[in-house]
Computed example of a mutant assay.
Amino acid sequence: MEDVLRPLLVLGGSVAVTVIVGWVVDQVLRRTDAAHPETPLWGLLRRCRLPLQFVLCAALLRGAYGEAHIARDHTKAIGQVLTLVLIGSAAWLIVRISAAVVESAYSRYATATRDAARVRRVRTQVTLIQRVVTAVVGVVAVAAMLLTFPAMRTFGASMLASAGILGIVAGIAAQSTLGNLFAGLQIAFGDMVRIGDVVVVDGEWGTVEEITLTFLTVRTWDERRITMPVSYFTSKPFENWSRGGPQMTGTVFFQVDHAAPVNAMREKLHEIVQDCPSWDGRDWGLAVTDTTPTTIEVRALVTARDADEVWTLRCEVRERMVAWLHDEHPYALPRVITAAVPEDTEDKPVDVD
């Protein structure tokens, strides 16, 4: 009878204690979150309930399974499994706690700061910091799991003598990966590009959607995703339209006839931008910037709040200006002048003298 009750008490008691402690911690965090709504930390820590229960249950079973007299022939194997589960769940708990702390700090900063550029910069930094923490905790957890095996400890001691050579070989083999890793840290703390910035890379216009330690994703205006190594942004020039503020100045060029009414076009441009909600009211202008034997080049200059608005404003100005010229001043549109060849010159022999 004792051989049946003892395992039930050990296993049941461990599970019961785990469930009760998890419920109590969750209730405490729930009430603390309700009492302090100004910080989201306590609510975010509630995500740690499951890994906490895994850690607690694995620790209780690891310490008490020997008293349960379960599978006595496999005591070492069961202990090894429980140790691995304990290490893995502890790493999971640490990652969840660090993520909650980082996300809470970012949320409070974003709420208290009105500068959108600073918020995007901090968001990029905390995202990469969290990825570094996760990677470090994962590597340490795997190393700790391997060291629980006696054979691995012996193997690790024998490999210390050749660690220098292996380090050189690994460094050469992973040169590209390490370059991207350091480039990712440089982007995060050098404030070169941030999540949410509008950039132009390889002639493609888009918004930075994700930054990791090794790659960066740009979402283009037509919903495509361009994935590029972060080393590209530290080794090649690119346009960042969000640096120094989101305001943009756009230009629209028109090729018109020499007789085009430039003053009337200037007045029409003013009328168009006043009617367009995309114009921010900062500046506008129209000037003749170039001439050719058959046309003149007229440049319209407009300003908007951001890149999306300036694109909309440029399209609106171009469409309405062309329509106005076609309806009111058709002679101002560029024309292709052709002349018929005189009939008396056709097939006339050429005098070479």
Rank of each mutant, 00 (worst) to 15 (best):
P246K: 03
A144H: 09
V137N: 01
T154M: 05
W205P: 07
S231V: 07
T154K: 06
H74K: 12
L8R: 07
R96H: 15
V288P: 07
Q255Y: 04
I272R: 03
G244I: 03
G250C: 03
R305Y: 10
P7V: 07
H326W: 00
E209F: 00
W284A: 14
D191E: 14
H74D: 13
G63L: 11
P37H: 08
E319S: 11
S278R: 01
G196W: 10
L166R: 13
T220D: 07
S98Q: 05
W92K: 07
T234V: 12
V322E: 13
Q80I: 05
T292H: 12
S231K: 06
V310R: 06
D351C: 13
V15F: 09
A163M: 07
L286K: 02
D280N: 15
I337P: 02
H270K: 09
T214E: 09
I78S: 03
P330L: 09
G203Q: 03
G66A: 08
E309Y: 09
H69A: 12
C315S: 15
V273Q: 02
L50A: 15
V317M: 04
S14G: 08
T220F: 02
A307G: 06
F238E: 02
M248C: 13
L45G: 01
V85M: 07
A35M: 03
G245L: 12
P150D: 10
A68T: 09
A174S: 13
V298D: 09
T212I: 06
D222N: 12
E316K: 07
V15S: 03
C315K: 11
R96S: 15
W42Q: 04
L11W: 10
P330D: 05
G196E: 06
V142W: 09
Q53V: 01
P37S: 07
E328A: 13
D197H: 05
R224Q: 14
D257V: 00
A307P: 03
D280Q: 11
L93N: 07
E316L: 02
L160M: 14
P229E: 13
L286E: 02
D202M: 12
E204H: 09
T345C: 01
R320K: 13
L45F: 04
L29Q: 06
R335V: 14
T234I: 08
A260K: 01
P261Q: 00
V21M: 11
D115H: 15
T214W: 00
R47M: 06
V198Q: 11
